[in-house]
Write a protein that binds this DNA or RNA. Structure first.
Length: 108
DNA sequence: GGATTGACGTGTC
DNA sequence: AGACACGCCAATC
């Protein structure tokens, strides 16, 4: 059926490969939403209720900052998961963000 | 159905 | 470099 915008977001986020990250804006753009990056984040709000669990820790803002970490059950969990996947996080910000960036528009 | 809301993005001061 | 302002657009109240 007509999946809501954030239903599409959920699916796309689940497609993010391990050890890679992407930005809300990139997701929105790949869904044809253009500048509605906020919708992506808004969708992720429901991500906690979705199943299977959505790797929301792989989604950050354009600066590579872990903006949504406070929305996790445990704020430190987001950084932990990223580091486990080989992503270096310092001061709530992804290092070498460009290297780990996964662009849905390109990869898909 | 208008107003409010956002896990954003980019530009300015 | 840090803080502030405006724009975007769909979902929810």
């Amino acid at each position: 059926m007509e999946q809501s915008f954030y239903d599409q977001v959920f699916e796309l986020v689940r497609l993010i490969p391990k050890g890679r990250v992407t930005s809300y804006g990139a997701i929105a753009k790949s869904l044809g939403a253009g500048g509605s990056a906020r919708m992506v984040g808004y969708a992720m709000s429901n991500a906690s209720l979705a199943y299977p669990a959505i790797p929301a820790h792989r989604v950050v803002n354009s600066t590579g900052l872990l903006t949504g970490k406070f929305h996790f059950a445990e704020p430190n969990l987001m950084q932990e998961l990223l580091e486990q996947e080989g992503v270096v996080v310092k001061n709530d910000k992804i290092q070498n963000f460009k290297q780990h960036f996964w662009d849905p528009l390109v990869e898909l």
